[in-house]
Simulated assay, not measured.
Amino acid sequence: MGNCHTAEATAVVVVVHPGYKVETIYRSVTARDVMNSNSGHYVGQLVKSPVKYVKLLRPNDTLLVGQVYRLISYEDVLKEFAAKKCVKLGKLLMERGVIAPVPVPNITSGKNVSRRENGGRKVHESHGGGQWKPALKTISEIGN
């Protein structure tokens, strides 16, 4: 009987909600079914490769038993897409020379360092010496 319980435990679809509540479904369902019962959320499948990430599913995709899925809010999906689009747009504008690249600070020396991109072209170089100093003067507290 112990083996029967083990087989049943893996024959479920696991859906993790945003508050880390775990829902178990004992049959295969579509992503649409899960999204309909959790409005404002998409279903993503946890993918384990060298880097762990979540792959968004289409509404017609079937959630398979033995797999783990996550509910992702509509707002989080929009934020992620906007961030990726912003990075791509920034790279495109830098390649076309519309905007200047941002210097990469060298944390150990306090100076900006040069780096090369796209076939050895220099991106930024700064010869400023010394330690970084704030641009604003210190504001004294009232009452001293």
Rank of each mutant, 00 (worst) to 15 (best):
M1E: 10
M1Y: 08
G2K: 01
C4T: 09
H5L: 04
A7H: 00
A9E: 00
A9F: 00
A9N: 01
V12Q: 06
V12C: 06
V13Y: 01
V13W: 03
V14D: 07
V15Q: 07
V15G: 03
V16H: 03
V16D: 04
H17K: 12
H17C: 11
P18R: 08
P18Y: 04
G19D: 13
K21Y: 11
K21P: 01
K21M: 10
E23Y: 02
I25Y: 02
V29F: 06
A31V: 00
D33G: 05
V34Q: 03
N36R: 14
N36T: 13
S37I: 01
S37F: 01
S39E: 13
H41G: 10
H41K: 12
H41E: 09
V43N: 04
G44F: 05
Q45C: 13
Q45H: 12
Q45V: 06
V47I: 15
K48V: 15
S49G: 12
S49K: 12
S49Q: 14
S49V: 09
P50I: 13
K52W: 07
Y53G: 11
V54K: 08
V54W: 01
K55Q: 15
P59A: 07
P59E: 12
D61M: 01
D61A: 08
L63E: 08
L63Q: 05
V65K: 15
V65D: 03
G66I: 00
Q67C: 14
Q67E: 07
Q67A: 11
Q67D: 13
V68Q: 14
V68Y: 09
V68A: 12
R70H: 15
L71A: 04
S73C: 12
Y74A: 13
E75G: 14
D76P: 03
D76C: 09
D76Q: 12
E80C: 11
K84V: 02
K84E: 13
C86Q: 13
C86H: 14
V87D: 11
V87F: 07
L89D: 08
L89V: 02
L93M: 09
M94I: 08
R96F: 06
G97E: 06
V98A: 06
V98S: 08
V102R: 14
P103V: 02
P103F: 00
P103D: 00
P103N: 03
V104L: 09
V104M: 03
V104A: 05
V104N: 05
P105Y: 03
N106L: 08
I107V: 10
T108L: 15
S109F: 02
G110D: 05
K111W: 04
K111P: 07
V113P: 00
S114D: 02
R115P: 00
R116Q: 10
E117T: 09
E117H: 06
N118H: 12
N118G: 13
N118T: 09
G120K: 02
R121T: 08
K122C: 03
E125D: 15
S126M: 03
H127I: 08
H127E: 11
H127R: 10
G129K: 08
G129F: 02
A135P: 07
A135M: 10
A135V: 13
L136Y: 10
T138N: 14
I142P: 14
I142H: 15
I142T: 15
G143K: 06
N144Y: 06
